[in-house]
Each structure stands twice: as structure tokens, then as C-alpha cells.
């Protein structure tokens, strides 16, 4: 005679259950099977307050272990899991399912403009080549090792604070239409990291970096479409940083 009680408890558990059914529509590519990339749908029960990355983990751990994607820290700092979610570049570990309309299938693709190696993994080498080309390290005239800390005023530090936040996830560069068509363009991320040193009062190679970005594939190819600013998961004003580099180049000449 305990059946009705159980049913009631069960019904309550049902009503209180936070889980909903979500469709993940993932772009799959496996060169060992086919040259074609295809969409694959996965249905999963998930709490909408969880992140897209948790959904991908559910798929990889419980449904299809062959799903391949990058992630390291899973907390928005390492910059490994930038992907195109519902047509926008985001970090899977910073995107909550409830924020991207879970009633419709959630599309997940690799970021664009870089070669897809498998599923959501792309070849980041051209991206890091552009990063290395702007010399993203402190260069000083004084080549001797310093005997004390290189001091800097709070105002001087504030000047480039925004661009220190970059985590090199490539969400900006792979959202840039100029980069999609021509990988020779440095791309927003490399310019942001050049900006970080150009406007650093402790650095002495700003002139050299400006000359590198004055190149035909440098800042002048920026069309100010603001895709990079929209895509940045760290909220860096990327287009503004690019414009500041342009302004520095012009004021340097006149």
C-alpha cells in the first residue's frame, strides 16, 4: 500500500529535476574515415545551468569516446577550448547552456580559418607563428640583467592593462573575415599582444614592433568589423587596441 506514496515522491522528484533534454549538433571530421566533415546529433540530459563543455564531456565519456576536442583547465584561463557555438566563437567552458537557447539544437563547430585536424581540433601553428612574429616578450636597451625590479607607475601600467588579459584562445583571430581569406594577415590576437608591449613603458622595442605591424599584412588590413571584440571571451576591446596601434603609427610619422 506504499505505492501511492512512492508515486508522489517520484512525481516530486520529476518536478524538481533540473535536467532537460538538449541536442548537441557537432561538426565531425575524421580523416581516417572520410574526407568529408558531417554533422552529428547527440541527445543528452543535462542541467541547463551547466556549461557546453560539460555537455561535450558527457558525450565523450558516456556516448562516443571518439569525439575529439581540446580543453585543459576548463575554467576560462588556458584558452584551449575556443569553438564556434551557435555560429559564434566562444569558450565552451564559459558558455552556459541556458544562455544559448537549449530548445533548439546547439551547433558546435571548430573555429574557422585554421585547418581542421579532427572534429573540433584545429592546427594552431599559423596562429602562433603570427604571435611569435610580433616578438611578444620584454626587450630592453639595457642588455644587462637588472639588479632590481623594473618599476612602473600605476598610470603606465593602466595604459596597456586591457591587452594583458589575452589568453591566446584564437577566438578573435578565427572570427576575423580578413584572416579567413588570407592567413598572411597577422590577425587580432597578434596585434593585441604587440599592443601589450608597444604601450609598456618598460619596453624599448615598440618602434620595431610598430614597423612589423606597418607591413602590408599588418594593422592596415583591419576592416574594423568588430568581430574580434564581439568574440573575445575576456572582454578585451580588440578593435580599439588595433586602432590604437594604427594611431601610434600615424602620429609617429607626422
Amino acid at each position: 500500500m506504499a505505492t501511492p506514496v512512492l508515486d508522489k515522491a517520484e512525481a516530486e522528484a520529476q518536478a524538481a529535476s533540473p535536467y532537460i533534454t538538449v541536442t548537441f549538433r557537432v561538426r565531425r571530421f575524421n580523416p581516417e574515415v572520410s574526407a568529408e566533415a558531417t554533422w552529428e546529433d547527440f541527445q543528452l540530459e543535462i542541467d541547463p545551468k551547466e556549461r557546453v563543455l560539460d555537455g561535450l564531456h558527457k558525450i565523450k565519456w558516456d556516448m562516443d569516446g571518439s569525439l575529439t576536442f581540446r580543453r585543459s583547465c576548463a575554467h576560462g584561463i588556458c584558452g584551449s577550448d575556443a569553438m564556434r557555438i551557435n555560429g559564434k566563437n566562444r569558450l565552451a567552458c564559459k558558455t552556459l547552456i541556458k544562455d544559448i537557447n537549449p530548445e533548439k539544437p546547439i551547433t558546435i563547430e571548430p573555429i574557422k580559418g585554421l585547418s581542421v585536424l579532427k572534429d573540433l581540433v584545429v592546427d594552431m601553428e599559423p596562429f602562433f607563428q603570427a604571435y611569435r612574429d610580433v616578438m611578444p616578450f620584454l626587450i630592453t636597451k639595457d642588455t644587462n640583467e637588472p639588479t632590481r625590479e623594473r618599476l612602473q607607475s600605476a598610470e603606465d601600467r593602466e595604459r596597456f592593462d586591457d591587452t594583458t588579459k589575452c589568453i591566446l584562445c584564437a577566438a578573435c583571430t578565427s572570427s576575423c573575415p580578413v584572416f579567413w581569406n588570407d592567413g598572411q594577415y597577422f590577425g587580432p590576437a597578434a596585434i593585441v599582444n604587440a599592443h601589450r608591449f608597444i604601450f609598456d613603458s618598460r619596453d624599448d622595442a615598440g618602434e620595431q614592433r610598430l614597423e612589423i605591424l606597418n607591413d602590408k599584412d599588418g594593422v592596415w588590413r583591419c576592416r574594423t568589423t568588430f568581430n574580434c571584440t564581439d568574440a573575445c571571451p575576456r572582454g578585451i576591446e580588440v578593435t580599439k587596441a588595433i586602432q590604437e596601434v594604427k594611431r601610434a603609427l600615424i602620429t609617429r610619422r607626422f
Binding site: 580559418g113 601553428e125 599559423p126 588570407d182 607591413d215 602590408k216 599588418g218
Partner: peptide, 21 residues
């Protein structure tokens, strides 16, 4: 693998001098 057009590599020529752009 589908290569992206005009990929940047370490063989990409370094900055050209001049302010044409």
C-alpha cells in the same frame, strides 16, 4: 587536411620597409 589559404609559416617574409599601406 584542408589547408587554410595563404597560411603564415616561419618562411613568411618578414616586414617590408615602407609606409605605402
Amino acid at each position: 587536411v584542408i589547408e587554410s589559404p595563404r597560411k603564415r609559416t616561419n618562411k613568411t617574409p618578414k616586414s617590408t620597409r615602407g609606409n605605402f599601406e
